[in-house]
């Protein structure tokens, strides 16, 4: 298990990053990506924030316990994965 931090990029610069200080213990990068997509999906579907006009411009910048970047998961990836093969435009 490794610790992953899901920092939320919602705008440019330091003010545009909501830094995750708590993190989640997960088995590996695939699980981290799945967690990021699930969180993004839930935020898009159910959460309204003053400061976010469009969730689809946001991304999770995932880092490891040492603060090194592991991956970036754009919120728009939720659409691609959800709609694959669904036949919806």
């Amino acid at each position: 298990m490794s610790l992953y931090f899901f920092n939320l990029r919602h705008g440019p610069g330091a003010d545009g990053l909501a830094v995750d200080t708590e993190g989640d213990e997960l088995a590996g990068p695939a699980e981290a990506r799945a967690r990021a997509l699930a969180a993004a999906h839930d935020l898009i579907a159910r959460t309204r924030l003053h400061s976010v006009r469009d969730w689809f411009t946001c991304a999770f910048e995932v880092t490891d316990a040492a603060g090194r970047p592991v991956m970036t998961v754009p919120f728009s990836d939720t659409v691609t994965e959800d709609d694959e093969g669904s036949g919806l435009a």
Partner: peptide, 26 residues
């Protein structure tokens, strides 16, 4: 309190809580 705990109480993703806290703090 932790963001994880607030996330549970408010029924939202932790990242949403972190962002809301950042806004109130800003």
């Amino acid at each position: 309190l932790t963001h994880e705990f607030l996330s549970m109480m408010l029924g939202v993703q932790r990242a949403g809580v972190t962002l809301a806290i950042q806004n109130l703090e800003g």
